[in-house]
């Protein structure tokens, strides 16, 4: 979290992350080129460049799409999520290398503009087998481009988190376009079953992880509570909430995080203003509720980010009767001061 914008706020972890990505990409590309040169000595450099960058971009795209649900399933994957955008930009650079070089290779030096050629050479748009697959790759690349140039927090704040998130959810559309680009292109040429199998395995992994993570969320969201008494719903035993941690409850379709900070319970809206991260899966650090995704912070008593930051989330009333925690799901305006409720007796 930084108060002013920098291109990249470097720290030790980011440097390690980026060096690892860079080193790995170099090793992958070298390996691909070397294996091709050994087993396929009649290769041309243009083709091996197009193929090595495309396969690496596709593999990285799968990793990117899996990190999200994996982090929902196991918190320890969160360390990969924090700098995921670096991985995304790397994937875009590889995909762009593949795309631009392919457009030059297949469409330049002709009697029409390469971009016109891209859409007018093969016009079998009404055929599955003959479909102009390059156009699909082009549109996927446009989405990746928009995502890459807006991946910085500057754009997140200026576009608004909602617009930004919507734009970045198009990655799933782009993924579908890429799959079709491969299935209607390379797979029509490379007949070895391993290619289809790998594509199917990749898509199955992405789909399964999303389903597992989604099912867990839905299960949590569908937890039933006893009817409200004076607006308060009994949600859990006070001992179930650890110090500096929270439990998340979905009441009236609103996810609310109930945090314990010392001997006091506080309730705030679960959705981080930055990228919609689950605040209730975070931790209180230096007196601030810290989002597990990118570390945005909020004060537990009023849902405000500590000055000079300006993010605010809704707060809720919470109280304790006996050992039961009662939560009022009616939100107070974002940033409203709420006193929380003191745990009167040692409970563990």
């Amino acid at each position: 979290m930084g108060v002013s914008y920098q291109a990249i706020g470097w720290n030790r972890q980011k440097k390690q992350y980026d060096w690892l990505i860079f080193g790995f990409c170099c090793i992958y590309l070298s390996t691909f080129i070397l294996v091709t040169a050994i087993f396929n000595p009649e290769y041309t450099f243009e083709t091996v460049l197009i193929r090595s960058t495309s396969t690496l971009a596709l593999l990285i795209l799968h990793v990117i799409l899996c990190i999200g649900p994996l982090s929902r399933i196991n918190r320890k994957f969160l360390s990969l999520l924090y700098n995921r955008r670096h991985l995304g930009v790397t994937m875009f650079v590889l995909a762009a290398t593949h795309g631009i070089f392919s457009i030059i290779h297949f469409h330049a030096l002709s009697n029409v503009n390469p971009l016109v050629s891209l859409f007018t050479s093969n016009v079998n748009y009404n055929s599955a087998g003959g479909f102009p697959f390059q156009a699909l790759g082009f549109f996927a690349l446009v989405i990746f481009f928009l995502m890459a140039i807006t991946s910085h927090d500057f754009w997140l704040h200026n576009l608004s988190p909602k617009t930004w998130k919507t734009l970045h959810m198009f990655v799933y559309g782009a993924y579908f376009l890429v799959l079709m680009h491969v299935m209607l292109g390379a797979i029509q040429y490379e007949r070895h079953p391993a290619f289809v199998l790998l594509i199917a395995l990749g898509a199955a992994a992405v789909l399964t992880l999303h389903l597992v993570a989604g099912t867990r969320e839905v299960k949590k969201d569908n937890s039933l509570f006893d009817p409200a008494v004076n607006g308060f719903v009994s949600v859990c035993d006070v001992n179930e909430i650890e110090d500096n941690r929270a439990k998340i409850f979905c009441v009236n379709s609103e996810r609310i995080a109930v945090y314990r900070f010392g001997d006091t319970l506080y309730a705030i809206h679960n959705v981080c203003k930055h990228q919609g991260g689950p605040l209730g899966e975070g931790k209180i650090i230096d007196g601030c509720i810290t989002c597990p995704w990118h570390g945005y912070q909020y004060l537990p008593n009023n849902g405000q980010s500590p000055p000079p930051f300006k993010e605010r989330v809704s707060t809720y009333d919470v109280r304790i009767e006996g050992n039961r925690v009662w939560l009022n799901p009616s939100p107070f305006p974002e940033g409203s001061e709420r006193p929380g409720t003191v745990i009167s007796q040692p409970s563990n």
Binding site: F32, T36, N40, R51, H192
Partner: peptide, 8 residues
């Protein structure tokens, strides 16, 4: 993938 490519 590199190994399984069709022969050039």
């Amino acid at each position: 993938l590199a190994w399984l490519q069709k022969r050039f």
